[in-house]
Nucleic acid binder design. Sequence first.
DNA 1: CATGGGATTGACT
DNA 2: GTCAATCCCATGC
Length: 199
Amino acid sequence: MTAAAGASHPYGPALAPSFYDRDVVTVARHLIGCVLVHGETAGRIVETEAYHQDEPACHAYVGPTPRAATLFKGPGIAYVYFSYGIHTLFNAVCESTGVGAAVLVRALEPLCGEELMRARRGRDPLTDLCSGPGKLTQALAIELSHNERPLDRGPVTIHARMPLEHAPAIAERTRIGITKATELPWRFVEVGNAHVSRP
DNA sequence: CATGGGATTGACT
DNA sequence: GTCAATCCCATGC
């Protein structure tokens, strides 16, 4: 890779808060193909899910509890939380301030820092580095301290699709691993991408 | 304050 | 296919 210290990323510009200030399902679809960056590691987003306060699978459904408060604090910030006592899950908060909504990033195609990802994950196969929401946070070293940090300024940032890349083919699915509102087709995957968590 | 469950993963039958 | 790990948070007494 390139990357002298201080050099700009070889990706498009970081997405502004206005990108996230839209219907959360639309944002989930548009995030496919964008690039998630943290330090020397980066990956192309290939799987997302939308969550909104009006449906019971969303943490914001019960209102702004201490954990879910982040979801109401305005578009373009990170929502990071622990699941199953083991894994950290990364979301991008969407829609207007006061509305609880976020996109869960579920899988990445590694672009930069693959050896660092392998070291952090303790695994070798490329498709086992970021092919799940808990895996990608471990590979990119995303932690609870990144909660509520702005996604256009970092330390964790999301960038527009790589300039020369054509628009990805996107398939719509139902969300995974939830018990409520399972019928909503709010999961988006890039068709045929080997890094998706579940085909 | 005690308890139960979860937007998961990895190891094992 | 099954199942344990492990801890924060929401809920209820």
